[in-house]
Computed example of a mutant assay.
Amino acid sequence: MDLVLIGRFQTVTGAKAAEERMAALQALAEDKWSDDDWRSPDERMPRELGQALAEMKLYDMGRYDVDVFALNHSVTRTAETVRIWTDESDVQGFLKVLLHYGARVEVFSRHEWDEDAITRPDASNRSDGGSDD
């Protein structure tokens, strides 16, 4: 997917908190990676994972939201802005953290847009681009 999520916060403190929380979630996800088939209700949310999310006050996150942090992604922060790059189409976990800490969020595909929110000149060659043809 080559997605970029940009969270813009009112303060550096909010951006740092989101960045730190994402690092903690990545460690948690890597430790508690779900390799089951989701058929057993007991395995959907291990108790220790639920407790860790409660300690982080991320009550609206589920196991799948946490799992996305174990997949290939990168997080950078510059002042009040946090950027996330991922090839995953499921970005719900990232969005929940950004919104939890008060970010205004922008999401776009680098296949179509560059970092300055300008349409890439070669974008029309890559997909139908939603054209009206």
Rank of each mutant, 00 (worst) to 15 (best):
L58H: 06
A52H: 13
K16P: 01
E30W: 01
L71M: 15
F69L: 02
T81Y: 03
Y64S: 15
Q10H: 08
D65V: 06
P41H: 07
G62I: 12
L53H: 08
G14E: 12
M45Y: 00
A54I: 03
D36A: 10
L53E: 01
T86D: 03
V82L: 03
T76I: 07
L5R: 00
L95S: 02
R44L: 13
E88G: 06
E30K: 13
D31S: 15
V12E: 13
G7S: 08
W85D: 13
E88D: 14
L28P: 03
A23L: 12
P46T: 05
W38K: 08
A103W: 08
A27S: 11
V97H: 03
F94A: 06
L58K: 07
E43H: 12
L28M: 12
A23R: 12
A29T: 04
E88C: 02
G7E: 06
A54V: 12
T76G: 09
A79W: 11
D36T: 15
V12D: 09
S74V: 05
D31G: 14
R39D: 10
Q92P: 01
T76D: 09
D90R: 02
A52E: 11
Y59S: 11
R21W: 00
G50F: 04
W38D: 15
T13H: 07
E48W: 05
E43D: 13
D37K: 01
T86Y: 05
A54T: 11
A17V: 01
I6K: 14
Q51G: 03
L53F: 00
V66S: 05
R77V: 00
V97A: 01
A17H: 05
D67P: 04
D67M: 14
Q51W: 00
S89A: 13
L49R: 01
S34M: 06
E88Y: 01
L3E: 03
V91W: 07
E48N: 10
G50H: 07
M1N: 10
G50V: 07
S40M: 04
L25R: 04
G7A: 10
A17L: 06
L58V: 14
T81W: 01
A52P: 04
E30Q: 12
D2L: 04
F94C: 06
L25N: 06
K16I: 10
R83L: 05
T76A: 11
Y64W: 11
D90E: 02
T11F: 00
D2G: 10
G7R: 02
V4G: 03
G102H: 00
A52W: 02
G62F: 07
V66Y: 10
H100F: 11
R39N: 12
A27E: 08
G14F: 04
Y64V: 13
V68K: 04
M61G: 07
K57D: 15
R39E: 14
A15K: 09
W33V: 14
W33D: 12
V75T: 08
Q92I: 10
R8S: 15
V97E: 04
R77E: 05
R47A: 15
M56P: 04
Q10F: 08
R83V: 05
R63D: 09
R83P: 00
A79D: 14
Y101H: 11
G50R: 07
K96N: 02
A70Y: 07
G93H: 08
T13D: 10
A23E: 12
V91A: 03
G50Q: 11
V66G: 08
E20S: 15
A79C: 00
G102R: 02
K16Y: 00
